[in-house]
Design a protein around this nucleic acid. Structure first.
Length: 369
DNA sequence: TACTCGTGGCG
DNA sequence: TCGCCAAGAGT
């Protein structure tokens, strides 16, 4: 349970601190729900400094709901390239089209309706509605959970959904009705620049006198985060298949759901095998220099002139890819699901960071030779 | 509920 | 180098 509130005056002190000076962001000091919405989606699990250039570019391309709703998914994904969590971009487009068709081209003005939109959950709905429409809703993110945990010395595991609900209910009971959006932003600002995860700067904290954690020397120990980590380590074999005659690479676009959905990717061992090696002419020109593993040898039967050109590692949230990169030519014109993409067209396509690395390694090699 | 979904920075 | 973390949501 939450301990009795030591001093609810901390709410006003926090707002005063926020008013006295906060970081400049292009979406701050506006109540435009579109700008608030786009920025909140981009900020999900993403640092402010990373978001700012993406936000500026996105606003230039898609300045309002109408422009976004009319856009192609490929163009939206291209703008999102490198930001990660690509379902955010696809859901953004879906939601814009729903707003256009069912909400007169505006962001809905009720929490219930906002929560129906793809990509908008409890946090984002509360953030946009409080900042754009002054609705007294608390947007609870990682910063807020940390700040709250310390102020009240909360002993709940903040990774549990019930802890988030607990905090949200408590904060909404005391949210200043005149400035709900500023209060939400000030909590996050405090978490981002003062109440840091490691080595919190309690000396600089405007509400240190109201903080239970500081009083009991627990600031560094809170919040409590108990998580089980099941990161899987996968060995990937990535093929750079280059058709010199066409001056093209063999690539495919992922289906929209799942890992790297909608993004352009290189052939890998398992993606080829899932097609059951749909190469028309197998067992031809098989280069047996590389037969370190049986899986590799099996795949190589579909390739000719295959050679190892490097290694790379990429760490996702729950996976680690240890990649071996091969250069290959293929003795067949077509592989189901894959397309030959001319080199001049590649820069127009959206690739995830993991394959941007591969692309860069290729251009380095060709520059050397 | 538990798992999935990217990327970059930091100690 | 490695694990952790950061303005969450979908399934």
């Amino acid at each position: 349970m939450i301990k009795p509130i030591p001093d609810e005056a901390w709410v006003r002190k926090l707002l005063d601190w926020f008013d006295a000076g906060n970081r400049i962001m292009p979406w701050r000091n506006t109540k435009d729900p579109y700008k608030r919405w786009i920025s909140e989606i981009m900020l999900q699990q993403t640092k402010v400094e990373t978001v700012i250039p993406y936000y500026e570019k996105f606003m230039t391309c898609f300045p309002n709901i109408q422009a976004l709703a009319a856009a192609n998914e490929d163009d939206v994904l291209k703008q999102w390239e490198g930001l990660g969590y690509y379902s955010r971009a696809r859901n953004l487009l879906k939601a814009a089209r729903i707003m256009q068709e069912e909400h007169d081209g505006t962001f809905p003005e009720s929490e219930k309706e906002a929560l129906k939109l793809p990509g908008i959950g409890p946090y984002t709905a509360a953030a946009v509605l409080s900042m754009a429409y002054d609705m007294p809703l608390s947007s609870v993110d990682g910063n807020v959970m940390r700040v709250f945990s310390r102020i009240y010395a909360l002993k709940e595991n903040v990774l549990e959904p019930r802890a988030v609900k607990l905090v949200r209910t408590k904060l909404e009971s005391m949210i200043p009705k005149d400035r709900p959006g500023d209060f939400n932003e000030s909590m996050m600002e405090l978490g981002a620049v003062v109440c840091l995860p490691n080595n919190p700067r309690c000396i600089d904290c405007p509400i240190q006198n109201s903080c239970q954690a500081k009083k009991s020397g627990l600031a560094q120990e809170l919040p409590i985060r108990i998580k089980k980590n099941n990161k899987k380590i996968l060995e990937k074999h990535v093929f750079v298949v280059w058709n010199k005659k066409k001056d093209a690479l063999l690539l495919k676009r992922n289906p929209s759901k799942g890992l790297l959905g909608g993004m352009w990717v290189f052939p890998t061992q398992e993606s080829l095998e899932s097609k059951q090696g749909l190469v028309q002419e197998n067992n031809k020109g098989y280069n047996n220099e590389n037969k370190e593993s049986e899986e590799e040898t099996r795949l190589l039967t579909t390739m000719v002139m295959t050679r190892k050109i490097g290694k790379a590692k990429h760490i996702f949230s729950h996976q680690q890819w240890n990649m071996t990169i091969y250069e290959a030519e293929i003795d067949s014109s077509d592989i189901m699901g894959y397309q030959w993409i001319q080199l001049s067209e590649i820069e127009k396509l959206a690739f995830p960071e993991v394959y941007q690395k591969v692309l860069r390694s290729i251009s380095l090699d060709s520059a050397d030779s």
